[in-house]
Design a protein around this nucleic acid. Structure first.
Length: 413
DNA sequence: TCTGGGGTCCTGCCGCGT
DNA sequence: TCTGACGCGGCAGGACCC
C-alpha cells in the first residue's frame, strides 16, 4: 500500500520576550515585575554589579535596579516583559515615551553576548530534533517539519511540543510555535498563542483564522503599506483577498500587488533556507547629542575612524572582503542620506575603508547637524574566494584624487 | 523628550555599451 | 553618422524585518 506523500508542514518558532527572559535567568528576583530591555549605551547593570560585587547576581535587591522614570538619554525599547506590556509599552518605543506609560518599570540594558549564547543554544537544540532550520535573527527560526519523523502527527503539534519542551528543559526559556503549510502562515500562527503556545493552521483555515486579522499582521506589510491600505478601506487580510489581483497590481505595483494578493490567500512557496551568505556588513552609531561637522569635527572624525575600524574588524573576524564602501548619515531632522562607491578590488582593510568612505562623505551636505553616522561594506565575498589585493599595494580608489568637495560639504580628515 | 542598530530586498534613475 | 531600444551595473532612497 503506497503511503500518502507528506503534507508540507512549516513551523515558525519565536522565543518569548527573548532579551528580557535571558536577563531573568540571571536575575530571577525580578520575575513577574515589569521590565523593559534596551536604551543602548548606558551600562546600568555594571553599576549595580560594582556596588554589589560581594553577592551573587540573584541576591542583588530589587530596589537596586534603575527605574524607567530615572532613565536619561536616547534609545528605544528592545523588548518588554509581559507585565510591562500591560502598561502599553513595547518594542521600538522610545524610552522617554515608555517612561510616561510605565515609570516604575525596571530598565536593563541588552547583554548581547549573553543573548547570542542562548540563541546558539536553542537553535542547536532544535537542529538535533529537526535539521532543516532557517535562521531569522537571534530569537526566531523557521523549521521544515515535512520530512521529520513525527512532523506530520497532529499537523505538527507533537513535534512542536517536543521542541518546546526540550528548549525549556535545557535553557529555562519558553517559546511559541506556529505550524502551517508555509512560512507566511506559520509566522502569523506563532503569534496566536503567545507566550509558550502552539498553534496549528491548515490551508483550509485561512478564511476563518487569517482573513479576520488586520492587514499589518502579514509579514511584509509595514506601516506605510498599512496606511495606504486603510485609505483604500482595506482593513483586514480578508479585505485584501476580496480584491482582484489586477486591482492590487494597479494600486501597489506589479511585484508588491501580486505578492499581496498571494499573501492574503495564504499562498507562499518560499523554501526553508538553511544557509545564506551575508550581503553587507555595517556599523552605525547615534550620538549622545547631535554633532556638527565643523564645530565637532574632531569628535566626528574619531567616531568615523572607529566605525571603519569596527566594520573592518567584523569583516576580518567573519572572513569576508567587500568592494562597495558606503556611508549613512541621519540629520537632526531625521532625514537620511547614503552614499557609496565601488572600488576595483575587495578589501577588509580599515585604512582603505576609511579612505573610500571619506570620499563618500565629501559628496553629502554637512551643514545640518548629524545624529547618526554609519559605515557599510557591501558586495561581499568570502575572503579566500575573492582575488585580494594586498592593502599596501592597493591602487587609489576611483576618483580619490579627482572627487571635489561640493559647496557645503566638508572633509573630515 | 519622540524615534537603536543591524540587516535584506526592491525600485527608479542614470550612464554606458551594443 | 545619427538615433533608438535594450540590458546591465552602479547608485540613492525607501520599506520592511528582528
Amino acid at each position: 500500500m503506497p503511503a500518502d506523500p507528506p503534507i508540507r508542514r512549516i513551523a515558525h518558532l519565536d522565543m518569548d520576550a527573548f532579551f528580557a527572559s535571558v536577563e531573568l535567568l540571571r536575575y530571577p528576583q525580578l520575575r513577574g515585575l515589569p521590565i523593559v530591555i534596551g536604551g543602548g549605551r548606558r551600562k546600568v547593570d555594571e553599576i549595580i554589579r560594582e556596588k554589589y560585587s560581594d553577592r551573587p547576581l540573584s541576591e542583588i535587591p530589587v530596589e537596586a535596579f534603575p527605574l524607567l522614570k530615572d532613565y536619561v538619554g536616547r534609545g528605544v525599547i528592545t523588548t518588554a516583559t509581559y507585565p510591562a506590556r500591560q502598561f502599553g509599552v513595547g518594542s521600538a518605543m522610545g524610552m522617554m515615551k515608555a517612561a510616561k506609560l510605565a515609570p516604575d518599570a525596571l530598565v536593563l540594558p541588552v547583554d548581547f553576548d549573553e543573548v547570542r549564547k542562548y540563541s546558539r543554544q536553542f537553535k542547536s537544540i532544535i537542529r538535533e530534533i529537526a535539521p532543516v532550520v532557517e535562521d531569522r535573527g537571534v530569537d526566531e527560526v523557521y523549521i521544515d517539519f515535512t520530512e521529520v519523523p513525527g512532523g506530520q502527527r497532529e499537523g505538527g503539534r507533537v513535534l512542536a511540543r517536543l521542541i518546546q519542551k526540550a528548549i525549556q528543559q535545557q535553557t529555562g526559556l519558553t517559546c511559541s510555535i506556529g505550524v502551517a503549510p508555509n512560512k507566511l502562515i506559520a509566522k502569523m500562527a506563532s503569534e496566536f498563542n503567545k507566550p509558550n503556545g502552539i498553534s496549528i493552521v491548515y490551508q483550509d483555515d485561512v478564511r476563518t483564522r487569517i482573513w479576520p486579522l488586520p492587514v499589518r499582521k502579514i509579514n511584509g506589510i509595514g506601516p506605510k503599506a498599512e496606511v495606504k491600505l486603510h485609505k483604500l478601506h482595506l482593513l483586514t487580510v480578508g479585505d485584501i483577498a476580496a480584491q482582484e489581483r489586477e486591482w492590487l497590481v494597479d494600486n501597489f505595483g506589479k511585484s508588491y500587488g501580486a505578492w499581496m494578493h498571494d499573501a492574503a490567500w495564504g499562498r507562499d512557496d518560499r523554501p526553508v533556507v538553511t544557509e545564506s551568505e551575508p550581503v553587507s556588513m555595517s556599523r552605525e552609531t547615534t550620538f549622545d547629542r547631535d554633532l556638527h561637522a565643523v564645530r565637532d569635527r574632531a569628535e566626528l572624525g574619531a567616531i568615523f575612524t572607529d566605525l571603519c575600524r569596527q566594520v573592518a574588524g567584523d569583516l576580518q573576524r567573519k572572513g569576508y572582503v567587500g568592494k562597495t564602501i558606503g556611508i549613512k548619515l541621519r540629520y537632526d531632522d531625521f532625514r537620511i542620506a547614503t552614499r557609496d562607491q565601488t572600488i576595483d578590488h575587495f578589501t577588509d582593510d580599515p585604512k582603505t575603508i576609511r579612505q573610500v568612505a571619506g570620499q563618500c562623505l565629501k559628496r553629502v551636505q554637512l551643514e545640518r547637524r548629524l545624529r547618526l553616522l554609519g559605515v557599510r561594506v557591501g558586495k561581499l565575498e568570502k575572503a579566500g574566494a575573492a582575488v585580494e589585493t594586498a592593502a599596501n599595494e592597493a591602487p587609489a580608489p576611483d576618483g580619490a584624487d579627482t572627487a571635489e568637495a561640493r559647496p557645503g560639504t566638508l572633509d573630515l580628515f
